[in-house]
Simulated assay, not measured.
Amino acid sequence: MKGTKTGSLRQYMPKKPKKWGLKMFVRAGASGIVYDFFLYTGSTTFDNMIFSEKESYLGSGGKVVVHLYKIIPHPRKSTVYFDNWFTSLELITLLKN
């Protein structure tokens, strides 16, 4: 990604083939269709999102899952998958209840 138009939105990801880029969190279906996403903006990523008291103690990975889960039309009828970067015991307990 060249240029400076993205300002501070560009993230350095040392383990990726292209080290600099935009970090996006995506909710997609089994078919690969993207239903929702949001851009990682650093320390201000979660400023405009509302979390309950229990949810506010989750780390950034847990907050990503909770935010994308809340906007699923029928969450009780859905199955949510995420990888180990997002996983914590607190998140699993919160989603179970």
Results as ranks from 00 to 15, higher is better:
Gly59Glu: 01
Thr44Arg: 12
Val34Asn: 03
Tyr57Phe: 11
Arg27Ala: 13
Phe46Lys: 02
Trp20Arg: 12
Thr44Cys: 09
Arg76Asp: 13
Val66Phe: 00
Tyr35Met: 13
Ser31Pro: 01
Ala30Trp: 04
Gly42Gln: 05
Ile92Asn: 10
Lys18Ser: 14
Trp20His: 15
Glu90Trp: 04
Arg27Val: 08
Gly62Tyr: 02
Val26Trp: 04
Ile71Glu: 10
Lys23Phe: 04
Gly42Arg: 04
Met49Asp: 05
Leu9Pro: 05
Thr93Phe: 08
His67Thr: 07
Lys15Trp: 04
Thr6His: 15
Asn48Ile: 04
Ser43His: 12
Gly3Ser: 05
Ser60Pro: 01
His74Asn: 11
Ala30Met: 09
Glu90Val: 06
Arg76Thr: 11
Leu91Met: 06
Leu68Gly: 00
Val66Asn: 00
Ala28Met: 09
Leu89Gly: 12
Pro75Arg: 01
Ser56Pro: 01
Phe25Trp: 14
Ile50Arg: 14
Gln11Met: 14
Ile50Val: 12
Gly32Cys: 06
Asp47Lys: 13
Leu22Pro: 06
Leu89Met: 11
Ser56Trp: 00
Phe37Pro: 05
Asn97His: 12
Met24Asn: 11
Val34His: 01
Thr93Lys: 13
Phe25Pro: 03
Thr45Asn: 06
Asp47Val: 08
Gln11His: 12
Trp85Phe: 14
Leu22Phe: 09
Arg27Met: 12
Thr44Gln: 12
Ser43Lys: 15
Lys15Cys: 12
Gly59Val: 03
Lys63Ala: 00
Val26Gly: 06
Lys18Arg: 14
Trp85Met: 07
Lys15Asp: 13
Pro17Ile: 10
Phe82Pro: 07
Thr44Gly: 08
Glu90Thr: 09
Lys77Cys: 04
Asn97Phe: 07
Glu55Asp: 06
Gly21Asn: 04
Ser8Asn: 15
Leu68Cys: 01
